[in-house]
């Protein structure tokens, strides 16, 4: 009778202990768990200097410039507060387009331009058929005009 309760409490204590430990550990490592920095964080100088990091944001519509003859692409990432200009040469993922969430890996040059050697697309959790997306756009568009 009694020992059963002891074991129950014991397991509860183990779980609370491990949970607290994990929480502190993850909080301490928070910086390293972040997969990317937002343009605002970059503007605030949060990423470590002189080290490679990732920056993530939305591609500003109309900012994509492709060079003739090679694979170089220039575009601007935004989090709707700050922006970061990115230069990249290589193959872009299928989902790369204006307005899309993008994560670029590389380093910040002294000129303030982010030179990326890897570009990944981050998509959102919404799934819908093209017709629905089309009608959402028109509803949205008519509101704006």
């Amino acid at each position: 009778m009694k020992s059963r309760h002891h074991r129950l409490i014991g397991i509860g204590l183990v779980l609370v202990g491990v949970g607290l430990g994990a929480t502190f550990l993850l909080r301490a490592m928070n910086e390293n768990i972040l997969f990317y920095y937002s343009p605002s964080q970059v503007a605030a100088g949060e990423p470590p200097e002189g080290r490679r990091f990732r920056v993530g944001g939305l591609v500003v519509p109309g900012s994509v410039q492709r060079e003739e003859g090679n694979l170089e692409v220039k575009f601007v990432l935004t989090d709707n507060a700050q922006t970061v200009a990115v230069v990249y040469s290589g193959i872009l993922p299928d989902l790369f387009r204006e307005g899309q969430g993008i994560i670029a890996h590389g380093e910040l040059t002294t000129a303030g331009v982010f030179t990326a050697d890897e570009v990944l697309a981050k998509h959102d959790e919404n799934y819908m058929p093209p017709e629905v997306e089309e009608s959402l756009k028109t509803v949205h568009g008519s509101k704006e005009t």
Binding site: F35, Y36, I103, E125, M128
Partner: peptide, 19 residues
């Protein structure tokens, strides 16, 4: 955390973000 993986589609409260 900031992750490359997108948030949940159906496990959140309310309407799922899927057709």
């Amino acid at each position: 955390w900031n992750t490359l993986h997108q948030p949940a589609t159906i496990s959140k409260m309310g309407k799922p973000s899927m057709d």
